[in-house]
């Protein structure tokens, strides 16, 4: 059974599996914003987000034959992007400091977004995956090596309280 993929996307996937690069590149263009957005939010760094996006596409091309329509293609690519983003996050040098972001206040959205980008790594991953992207605790648990479900949950609750305080000032 196929889920959610439009006819056109199905058509492109089929051609990509046959080895047509042009079709695959079209697929990437459709998913570009999706993939880049998640990578950028998780990493809070434009350069790394760009690298992860490119890497996600290249790897997806290499394993396109394994894709089987059990989940929508966009989710399949997004999962890959999340995996790589977390790998990049975990492999950062110990002295890597995330760039201090100015808190933008030109719109409510930007204000909230910049607060999320300034969160500590794990808190940021959890709120993005759970509350923005709609992943379940179980799925988020699978992306982490060292956090239990209860820890994920309590971190999320703290982050929500923190953000509520920020936006209701």
């Amino acid at each position: 059974m196929t889920v959610d993929n439009t006819n056109y996307v199905e058509y492109l996937i089929e051609h990509s599996k046959e080895g047509r690069k042009r079709s695959f590149i079209d697929l990437c263009e459709i998913n570009l914003r999706n993939v880049y957005t998640i990578a950028y939010r998780l990493l809070s760094n434009e350069d790394e987000a760009q690298k992860v996006t490119l890497h996600t596409f290249v790897k997806s091309w290499e394993k396109i034959k394994e894709y089987n329509s059990k989940i929508p293609f966009s989710i399949w690519m997004k999962n890959t992007a999340i995996e790589y983003s977390i790998i990049v996050l975990n492999n950062r040098d110990a002295d890597y400091t995330e760039r201090k972001r100015p808190i933008k206040s030109s719109s409510e959205q930007e204000f909230l977004e910049s607060h999320i980008l300034s969160l500590p790594k794990d808190d940021r991953i959890i709120i993005i995956l759970h509350d923005i992207e709609g992943y379940s605790y179980k799925e988020i648990y699978n992306f982490f090596e060292n956090l239990e479900i209860d820890e994920i949950k309590s971190k999320l609750i703290n982050t929500r309280e923190y953000l509520i305080n920020k936006i209701s000032v």
Binding site: I25, L32, Y36, Q109
Partner: peptide, 23 residues
């Protein structure tokens, strides 16, 4: 507010170009 956030980030141009030469 979180719901409104989806897809507000503009990807840099050139990624697709880079992808096609990489492939």
């Amino acid at each position: 507010k979180l719901k409104d956030l989806t897809h507000t980030v503009e990807p840099p141009s050139g990624i697709i170009q880079a992808l096609s030469s990489k492939l």
